[in-house]
Structures are given as C-alpha cells and as structure tokens.
Design a protein around this nucleic acid. Structure first.
Lengths: 362, 362
DNA sequence: CAAGGGATGGCAATCGGTTGCTGCCCCCCA
DNA sequence: TGGGGGGCAGCAACCGATTGCCATCCCTTG
C-alpha cells in the first residue's frame, strides 16, 4: 500500500529533496542560497545546479515563518478606480519590484471600515505599509504603525513618515495664474472633509489669495468624483464667480461638464483649475489646467522611504517629504470675461440628460 | 541578565501565549477557533475571550505553511495605468474580499518578461491566479495552470477556464450601428499583435461587415494607448474612411484627438467607435460611442470561477464564459458626411503641438 | 457492576526553511 | 610534533498553527 505516496496538488521539491539528491544536509542547501560565502564554492555550485535541474524554488512562506521576511509590502488606496492613484500604484510597484519586494495593492473603497478590515488582514503578511490618502484617524494610523513600519502618502503626521505633494507651492502658482488673468474672486470646491489634502489646499488658497489681494469663497464638501463635480456645478450656480479651483481633477471635470450643460462656456465664462493632473485631464473638454502632482514619484518615493525604515539602522527621518508640484496650463483657464450667470440667457443650454453617476443617457 | 527578554519588532501573542493564559494546551486554542464544535462550548468561549483581550490574531503565515491555505489570490494585469482594468480590479477585489480572500494585484507593464518574473514570485504565495489580458504564450500559461488553479480573462483557451466579453455580439452591434448611419467602409485600428482580443475583434468585424455588405480595411498594429491613437491618426490620414472602429477606447480617444488636430471634425467627417467603455470615454471630446464591456462583472466573475476551482470537487467547466457587451451610443458617431480628407482644405487645423506621450506642450 | 462509547483535551509530528552551535578536518606555524 | 585556528558541513531547535491519534472522564446501557 505504500507504493503510491499521497500527492498534494503540487509537490514542488524542497531543500530536503535537493539535499538528498546532493548528498548533503538541508542546512547546507539553505546556506548555498542564502549565505553563499558560508559554504564551499564547489559544493554551492553543485547544489545550485542540482536545484535548478529539479526546479527547486524556495518557499516564501516557509522562509517567512522564522525570519519574518515576507518580501511583501502593502499599498492601501482609497479608491482603485480613481485615476489619481494609477501612477502612484505604478511607481510604487515598480520601485518595490526592483527592490525585490512584491506589492500588495488593496482598495478600501473610500471607507474607514473597509480600510480597517483590509489592514487587519494584510498587516501580519507584510513587512511595511503605505497608506495612500487614508481615511483613518491619526490614532488608528498610529496603531498600525506600531505593528509595522508605515508611511502615509498625501497626509502629514508628526510622528509617522509622510510623503506629500507641495500643495502650498502648487496652489500658489494656480492663484498667481488666475490673478494674472484678471480674476478677482476664486471659488474653492472642497473635497471630502476627512481629507487632509483638502484642508491643506483650502488653507493654501486662503493664504495665497490674501497675499495677492483676491477674494475667496468655498463650497462643499463634495465627493471627489465626476458626480460630485456635477453636484458642485449646481451649488456653484447659485453664487458664481469667474474662477474656480477644485479639490481635484475629477471634481473639476465634473463641474466643467455641469456648467457646460447649464450653458456656461469654459473658459470664457468660468476658468477652472484642478489638482493632480490625472489620466484624462488632458483629453476632457476643455483640456484642464491643473496642478500636477508628481504621482509616479510619489509612489516610488514612498516605497523608498519605507524600505529605508525597514533597514536595521532605522534612519527615523520624520520631516515630511515635500515633492514639487507643477502648474500645467491647458485650456480651461482664460482671461476673465465680462459675463456671469445666468448663463442660459446668453446661450441656450444644449439639452441633454445625465445620470447621477455622470453617464449620458442613451 | 535574563529579566530583559530579547524583543522583536512586534511580539504579537501566539496560541501558546493564549494557551498559557487559559491553562490549556495550544491545540485546544487552535481548535477553539478553527473547529468550534470540537471543544467544549464554555472552554471555547473562555479561550476566545482571553484571546480577544490579549489581542491575539492568528498568524496567516503559520497557518498557511502546513495547510497551504494562504487566502491570497493573484490578479495580474497587463498595465495598471490602463483604465480598462480599473473596474476589473475593483470587481475582483470586492468579490475576493467578501469570500474572505485577499487579492494581490500585480502590474506586468505589458511585458511577458515581467509577467514571468511576477508569476515566479507570486505563484507560491497564492491559492489561485487570474491572468487578465496576459501577454504570455499559451504554453507558458499552461505551465502556470499546472501549479495553481488559473483563470484567463479576455482570452480563450481550450484547456483553461476563461472569462471573456462577447466581442462578436458587441462588434456586430457596432457595425450595424455604422451601417444604419450610412457608412459603407470601416477602418479597423488594430491593437497589439499578441492580443487575443484584437484578433477576435478583427475577425468579428470581418464577419459582420461581410453579412451587412460593407467594406473593411485594417491598419496597425498600434500600441493600445493615447499615443498609439495619435500615430494611428497619421496612418489613417493616408487612406481615410468615413468610419473607424478601434481595438480599444484609448486608441479611439487618441485617434479622435489626432484627427481633430489635423482639421477633421468628429463625427461629421469621421465616425469613431471604441471598445470597452473605459473611464474617460464619456468625457473625452466628443464623448465616445463604444462597445461596453461588463468590466466589473468580468473581474467578479473571474474570481467566482476561480473560487469554484478551488473547491475540492473541482467542477471543471471549461467552456469559456461569455459576458454580454453593450453598445453605448454617444457623440462620436453620426450619419456619413460627404467630406473626406484632406481635411485641412476645409478647416484650418488649430495649430498646437503634442508630445509623444500625448500631452499638450505648454 | 462492567463494558461501551461519546465528549474533551493533550501529545507530538508536520509544514519548509533558517541559524546558533558543535565537530571535524586540514593547514600553518612555533 | 603539537597546538591554534580557519573553513566547512551537520545537528537540532525554532517560527506558529494544524491535526491524527491517544488518554481521560463520565455517562449510558445491558
């Protein structure tokens, strides 16, 4: 009865198999891979040859158990379908890959609940965590950071390493741009209240406007999505201004679309500036003037910072890393025109209906 | 000297700690969680209470080593920055999460090399794999499938479970739509040669056109990106037709933009239909008529199929799952106009420069 | 009252590497 | 010739949970 050994789905060879085939001890095989100098060069070579022949691959689970080195990093993003994260993910994955790490990207669907759940699941698996635009409270983040090295992206915390875009400088450039075009009052379309970046951008706007002697106004909060922008357009229509800066590009694209439907012309009637320079901001109508975040770099930099934390001689640099933003002028901004709402009196609104999630009805 | 026990970064409690605190054996603690009926209800309750108090969390690595259950699934996508995948990722992550699995999303940057490397790294960690738009050869995929249950998305293989959009039906609808608008010749703008979907779409176009007595033409291959579309516009300009169907939306948006820069009006001069209904296809200029793939469902369905494979009584349904596509008519298609190239004679092209990756120059 | 059996809990092996320590061999140098 | 030391390989414990098997205990039943 013992000629047919029980088989599992995939009996890949182990160091024990390799050891037997080579006539050495398992520990020697292990060291042949993980500590090359520790074993005779010839022996090591032979072991590696045989191992390759047998198709041996070291089992990451087994390695991770005693050492804790899973070679896994986690990146939690608020919303994978938000283009803001695309290049961040790319940059992070790439950086992780070249460093020999695998990136575990998880979507938390804009919910603190889901974020906690995902964290619970992921924390024990990974060596480090990047929280991109977390919706968690500072204290929740600290709890996580106590368990694994953690980096926050797009948010500043005093006791956790953070990587952010230089919002203040970017906002300053945007405001200057509008001022040069003759605008005197700027409406800020706010994003989620829980968002650190939103508060930061609004404050920076206030400051810049104050220095340049412009007026500001604020509407919101709105969901940072196309649909949110559509809603913002309706609110904005009550007290319009000639210039708008939005929390992010999605909101900007949405508000442009909403205003256009109401009969406004962009940029002739209203100039709009977004934030982040996401995918699509260059081919929307009109192409959007926006404060470009160094997205890819943001992701890559976060990984590098995290990896640095992982090193035994933890550097502990806690000053937030400020990555430069850049104003990209496209076609949604223009010299201030004479006309303000109601737009409909000037141009009949192209009649068309839009569903609540921002799609055209057939 | 032994009062200060060596500490590791995070000594989370183990079943041994819990066992000691409860005065029972570790195995009992283990069973209290994994096999509730097997241990006295009171004991189990007490153990669970103490465990909760101590903040015990079962270590997934340790559990996975003997059992092989990592509760991890892998989703490999050709390009995370391609919006085609956004909703697929969402759908897949969501489905995995509710099933108690964590999804490991990996970007392979459109390269078979990178795909292999990522697979090597990921295969031993996960219980199953979803290959979305793989650039691998059939035989490479089979090798992977031998190691772990594997599902291919957007590609049909006879011996591996696959989930695809019903391209033929979708293409048929698109061609009918163009025929109704009076178009007689359709140019197909091809995507990557290695793409199964590209071949499928082109064949379906041929068939549909044949039945409806239309002419077809084919240009390409082009990279399935905005930049690819810009290049396609130049090629198309040599032998223009009044209708274009592209391999995907990105290509469609790119070619629309390219043609517009050359002075063509869309849809008056050229009607364009894309494929996939990606993020952005509704707010580009003009909003794109496209064959909508059930993206979110595609992802969710793939996960469900994979999970089914994981069950011990493997169903082994090998007929590819065809998910229905839908034609979304927006504003990039219109009745065939009288005018063909050269466009420039009719309308002076708005002079503007575009960088090779499709951004406007400042 | 004894045999049988279900309910509970413990023992110990196991998953596949890693690593501290030991032991052996050989070479070098005094 | 003997002692010291470096190079190399093996032994065995360990990471933390799972699980087959055995030992108890107590209750039931003939």
């Amino acid at each position: 009865m013992d000629e047919e050994p029980g088989w599992r789905r995939q009996a890949s060879p182990t160091i024990y198999d390799v050891a037997k085939a080579c006539g050495v001890a398992p520990s020697t095989v292990s060291r042949a891979f993980s500590r090359p100098g520790r074993v005779n060069a010839e022996t090591a070579d032979r072991i590696r040859r045989v191992a390759a022949e047998m198709g041996y691959r070291t089992n990451p689970l087994a390695r991770a158990l005693p050492t804790g080195k899973t070679s896994l990093l986690a990146l939690l993003v608020a919303d994978v379908t938000n283009p803001f994260f695309f290049e961040i993910i790319r940059g992070a994955q790439e950086a992780a890959r070249v460093a020999g790490y695998t990136m575990l990207v998880a979507d938390v669907e804009e919910s603190a609940e889901a974020e906690k759940e995902v964290l619970d699941r992921v924390v024990p698996l990974v060596e480090g965590i990047i929280l991109a635009t977390s919706r968690l409270s500072d204290s929740s983040i600290r709890v996580t950071a106590k368990q694994r090295p953690t980096i926050v992206l797009n948010r500043v915390m005093t006791d956790i390493p953070s990587v952010v875009t230089d919002n203040a400088r970017g906002m300053r450039r945007a405001v200057e741009h509008l001022a040069e075009l003759g605008h005197t009052t700027i409406t800020y379309v706010a994003g989620p209240e829980a968002s650190w970046a939103d508060g930061m951008r609004w404050r920076s706007l206030r400051e810049a406007a104050f220095e340049l002697e412009l007026q500001t106004r604020r509407i919101g909060p709105f969901s940072p999505t196309l649909a949110g922008g559509l809603a913002a357009a309706r609110t904005f229509d009550d007290r319009p201004t000639s210039a708008v800066i939005t929390y992010n590009d999605l909101l900007a694209i949405g508000i442009m679309r909403g205003l256009t439907l109401m009969g406004a012309r962009i940029p002739a009637d209203v100039s709009v500036i977004g934030f982040d320079n996401i995918f699509g901001s260059d081919f929307c109508t009109p192409p959007l003037t926006t404060v470009a975040a160094p997205l890819r770099n943001l992701g890559a930099f976060a990984v590098k910072t995290l990896l640095a934390q992982l090193a035994p001689n933890a550097p502990r640099g806690l000053r937030p890393a400020l990555l430069p933003a850049q104003l990209i002028v496209r076609e949604s901004t223009a010299r201030k025109g004479p006309r303000l709402a109601p737009w409909a009196t000037a141009a009949p609104p192209p009649q068309r209906s839009v569903t609540k999630d921002g799609n055209w009805l057939p």
